[in-house]
Design a protein around this nucleic acid. Structure first.
Length: 499
RNA sequence: GGUCCGUUCGUCUAGGGGUUAGGACACGUCCCUUUCACGGAUGAAACACGGGUUCGAUUCCCGUACGGACUACCA
């Protein structure tokens, strides 16, 4: 009997959640739901200096928007509360002390300035500084100090950090679900800081302790964590938790749409597309656009994101959340980073927009109009736009008489036939019994037949006269929506203006 | 610089020792249509390079190149 699957999404509240973070959360969620497990949300706020007001609320709202529900964690509570690391602060020191007492970690008194200086000089000589077995015997720590000397510093309240004593020569192996075995030699690793001088744990300690305590079975996170994963393995080992260590899956990164490098906010800004799920007000007061506000549907977002780095192996492109839950597998996630190209996201948006009911769209995007009219209009525009709010915009222009007329069409098509045809049409307009598309069309064609003009000859000009534009939705339906009087008015005006 | 990870059409990707290397987006052409869009059809478009292994490598191995991540008392 396998134990229950428990996964976690563990962001830092340092600003708006990046779209890549949403994908990470999604993959976690998909796995949990598929296996009947639990999805946890833990807030990793161990760096008070980077804490940003409102970020946590943002994360919650963003996840809720795309439909990722949290079973346990910040915002919902659970048996392992608290789920905010800052509120778990005392625990971490206890665990760090355990390591110290067992000789697996040690106090270090070197200041960041001293270490920086050392790095600088070594770097200028072309080599790198690593705080590890090779160097720690020459540095200012409880390994080089006498027990009394260490205690004296501690008693004097001198600032210290606690570092992990990484074994000198050992091959660390790590099984990643996506990348298979990864080997790293401990001699290339750092004696990473576990506890900072402010008494807060670093990511590494807090993460391992919490994942263990919260009984996490799968750690699914971005590839940027792969280099420190061996350290985490060492930590599990040091605590004696190796037998219950979670499985790792390091996700490929989201890359810039063009050029090289990791996707960043700058790329999004210059490319004119969002990188955040929701609009975000930066600490300086400026706003960053969000997918939701730009008109992306959550279904499109989820489908698009799921396919960035994963695919079902079939030719099915459209997946609901439930279908994703069913089809998802960590093994089918690929290793290479994916360039983030929004054109596919737009296509998905269009597809999902078409799937929405006319009524639903009418209610949210044309709330001021009478529902039946609104539904007709939605039907007119739904398949021609990418974003739902375009329906509102298009409707506004449909319902507003044109002030200018497309010059090129006028030059090419404004002739006697057009003039006579439209005039004849205007004249029979009042006599159309039922002012609906079919009847309008019927009346128009029979009237044109009488005066001997082919419909195709004047349709373009009729459109320009009515809307000013050279392209647009079905004209008959458009006229039905405008209403008889408006059509007559617009046509008369065009006749007058164009002469 | 060091460590680790990666590399199939422009993009997202399927495939995997013998295939006409498949699909989707974007792009071109055609059809549908009163126009645009939708839809349909169709076209152009890829296995980074060099060595092995093998009867045969895009697929396996090794190098090289290129790309990425990490290299903080940030996560």
């Amino acid at each position: 009997m396998n134990k229950q699957v428990r996964v976690r999404f563990a962001p830092s509240p340092t600003g708006a959640l990046h779209i890549g973070g949403v994908r990470t959360a999604l993959y976690n969620y998909l796995l949990a739901k598929q296996l009947g497990g639990k999805m946890l949300l833990r807030i990793e706020d161990t760096d008070q200096t980077r804490y940003v007001e409102g970020a946590e609320e943002y994360i919650l709202e963003a996840l809720a928007w795309v439909g990722i529900t949290i079973d346990e964690g910040v915002g919902v509570g659970g048996p392992h509360a608290p789920y905010r690391q800052s509120e778990r602060k005392p625990m971490y020191m206890e665990y760090a002390m355990k390591l110290i007492n067992e000789g697996k970690a040690y106090y270090a008194f070197d200041t960041s300035e001293e270490l920086d200086a050392m790095r600088q000089t070594l770097e200028s000589q072309g080599s790198a500084f690593t705080y590890n077995a090779a160097t720690r015997t020459k540095l200012n720590n409880s390994l080089t100090l006498s027990e009394a000397g260490t205690q004296a510093k501690l008693d004097a309240g001198e600032p210290f950090v606690i570092r992990l004593k990484v074994p000198a020569k050992e091959e660390i192996r790590l099984k990643d679900i996506i990348r298979d075995w990864v080997h790293v030699h401990s001699s290339t690793m750092d004696d990473k800081v576990l506890m900072k001088s402010d008494g807060m744990p670093t990511y590494h300690l807090a993460n391992v302790v919490d994942d263990h305590l919260m009984e996490i079975t799968h750690v699914i996170r971005g590839e940027e964590w792969l280099p420190s994963a061996p350290l985490h393995v060492l930590l599990y080992r040091a605590f004696g938790w190796e037998d219950t260590m979670p499985q790792f899956a390091h996700l490929p990164l989201l890359l810039k749409p063009e050029g090289n490098g990791k996707l960043s906010k700058r790329d999004a800004d210059s490319g004119g597309f969002p990188i955040f799920p929701l609009e975000w007000t930066n600490p300086d007061g400026t706003k960053s656009i969000g997918f939701r506000e730009e008109g992306y549907l959550k279904e499109a977002m989820v489908n698009f994101l799921a396919f960035l780095g994963w695919n079902p192996g079939t030719e099915q492109e459209m997946f609901t959340m439930d279908e994703l839950i069913e089809a998802f597998s960590l093994e089918r996630i690929n290793k290479a980073g994916a360039k983030f190209d929004v054109s596919k996201a737009k296509w998905y948006n269009q597809q999902y927009l078409k799937l929405q009911s006319d009524e639903e769209l009418a209610k949210t995007y044309l709330p001021d109009l009478e529902i039946d009219t609104a539904k007709k209009i939605v039907h007119l525009f739904k398949e021609r736009v990418t974003f739902p709010q375009e329906i509102t915009q298009e409707t506004k222009s449909l319902l507003t008489a044109p002030t200018t007329y497309d010059e090129t069409i006028i030059a090419a098509k404004w002739n006697d036939d057009a003039r006579n045809g439209i005039t004849a049409f205007v004249n029979i307009l009042p006599s159309i019994e039922n002012f609906v598309a079919d009847e309008i069309k019927h009346s128009l064609s029979s009237e044109l037949e009488k005066v001997g003009i082919k419909m195709g000859k004047i349709m373009q000009m009729l459109r320009v006269a009515l809307t000013g534009a050279n392209a647009g939705p079905d004209l008959m339906l458009s006229m039905e929506i405008m209403g008889r009087n408006e059509v007559i008015e617009r046509l008369n005006r065009a006749l007058r203006v164009l002469g």
